[in-house]
Amino acid sequence: MKTLKGALFPVAVLLLWEIGMRASGIQSDSLAPPSQIAVAFYEALFDGTVLDRTAQTLFVVICGLGIGGGLALVFSVLMGLVPAFARLMQFSIEVLRPVPPVALIPVAMLIFGFGFPMEITLCAFACFWPVAIYGHAAIANIEPQLLDVSRVLRLSPVARVFKIVLPAALPRYFVGFRLSAAVSLIIAVTVEITINPLGVGFELMKASQSLHPDRMFAMLLWIGVIGGGLNWALLFAQRRLFGRAGLAAAR
């Protein structure tokens, strides 16, 4: 029922858009009626373009998330458990974190040239921060009594990390990873639109520059679908793979 009500507005907009364009008989290089967008998407889907481009972008997004998020995971555990390391890194973090990842496009371009490595590096840089910051906060906020439990039971440092610290911090790490996934897609598409001849962003740009608004809007909608899908996949993983530990986040 809720989704039905929610769908009312966009469906109305689409209908008006369709009717408006047909009634006025506009021939436009920048707009296309929804029906044409649907047809363009259908064609792009079946000539393989959409799938190929999506695979490229997803590959970049997932590699960036894995590398950046993975490094951030290790980094934040060290920061949380070794105060000396946290103090050592404090300044570097404050200097690096405010750098907009897109400002590094020219640098990455110089180092790597066109292609996957350049784009993955930028995504990894952007993905590092949400996971590192949420993770560090999560570890700092672990219930002190749980740490007392691990001390009274004489858990080894490794057992403490894997049996107490990470499970206790897991819900917040998931928040960090979900934010990073969204950031990763933003950076990937930005890099593809601005410079890198890869992925859905490049396809979107190509459609725009070749004056194919129907194809352009089709790609735009599809990018939205990818973003939603990524978030859903991580939520699903959180619920299914990690059972109770993940569920604690839903509270």
Partner: peptide, 15 residues
Amino acid sequence: VAFMFQDYSKALLPW
């Protein structure tokens, strides 16, 4: 030496 904590909800691992 075993220690039993006052606040059981925080001393047990919820996961």
